[in-house]
């Protein structure tokens, strides 16, 4: 028996919004420690890794490890049927070929359940090597989304250059060129407005804008985003989900000329 409850459907809706543009389907691996999903996009350029800890749920029960392959488009249709303040419970029997989403209104007067067929996706997890990143940047998630959106107008790719002084995002194309420089902040009132740079070595890396823009669909989940970079390895874009876990996107760099 598997049962996971969140007192508020908003978080689950936001999580799905953050992955459904990149992934058509995904396997949710459930164990007593929580729910994990790891999947590459269709082009195998990026990888999504979602971790939801069992202690972050309002109720969590997982008697046996369970892998549930889900069509994320179908899951999105079902979650659209939940009000934001509904309680959502995900339920499945051991070895079942369906999963049930139950939505309960706050006053308990409306209870709906939606059963969805599971898929056999046969997805195998890739091992992600432990990496000491040369640069780790924490910045407001909204600011990162804004920069990715703005620079995508100028080029298909963005160059991220990180030094001790700051981080610079650049794009150039037929229209011209664009540069956005962010300096590390000191003495900000609110932690979520801070820009913090931890640098061992400066890095310059080039990434495809369309993937960065897809990652920013996670912006509603978190005030801050963390970018981890080293030369010649994938960028990690991490959004923490308060009290529940995190979503990490890994993006392979572009091949330099």
């Amino acid at each position: 028996m598997f049962e996971a409850r969140l007192n508020n459907a908003t978080t689950l809706k936001k999580i799905l919004d953050a992955i459904k543009d990149l992934l058509n389907e995904g396997t949710f691996d459930c164990s007593d420690s929580g729910i994990q999903l790891q999947a590459m996009d269709n082009s195998h350029v990026s990888l999504v890794s979602l971790t939801l800890r069992s202690d972050g749920f309002d109720k969590f029960r997982c008697d046996r490890n369970l892998s549930m392959g889900m069509n994320l488009g179908s899951m999105a249709k079902i979650l659209k049927c939940a009000n934001n303040d509904d309680t959502v419970t995900i339920k499945a029997q051991d070895n079942a070929d369906t999963v049930t989403f139950m939505f309960e209104s706050q006053n308990q007067e409306k209870v709906s359940d939606y059963e969805m067929k599971l898929m056999n996706l046969d997805q195998e997890h890739l091992g992600i090597p432990e990496t000491d990143y040369s640069c780790v940047v924490r910045m407001p998630a909204m600011e990162f989304a804004r920069i990715c959106r703005d620079l995508a107008q100028f080029s298909e790719s963005v160059v991220i250059c990180c030094t001790k002084e700051g981080v610079k995002f650049s794009a150039s194309g037929d229209v011209g060129s664009a540069n956005v420089k962010l300096a590390q902040t000191f003495n900000v009132d609110k932690e979520e407005e801070a820009i913090v740079i931890e640098m061992q070595e400066p890095v310059v890396l080039t990434f495809a804008c369309r993937y960065l823009n897809a990652f920013t669909k996670a912006t509603p989940l978190s005030n801050q985003v963390q970018l981890s970079m080293s030369a010649d390895v994938p960028l990690v874009v991490e959004y923490r989900i308060a009290e529940l876990g995190h979503i990490r996107y890994y993006l392979a760099p572009k091949i330099e000329d």
Partner: peptide
């Protein structure tokens, strides 16, 4: 995608 590395080139297959 010829100017683009793929993500599974960097990670360890199962």
């Amino acid at each position: 995608l010829k100017d683009q590395f793929q993500i599974d080139q960097f990670f360890i297959p199962p």
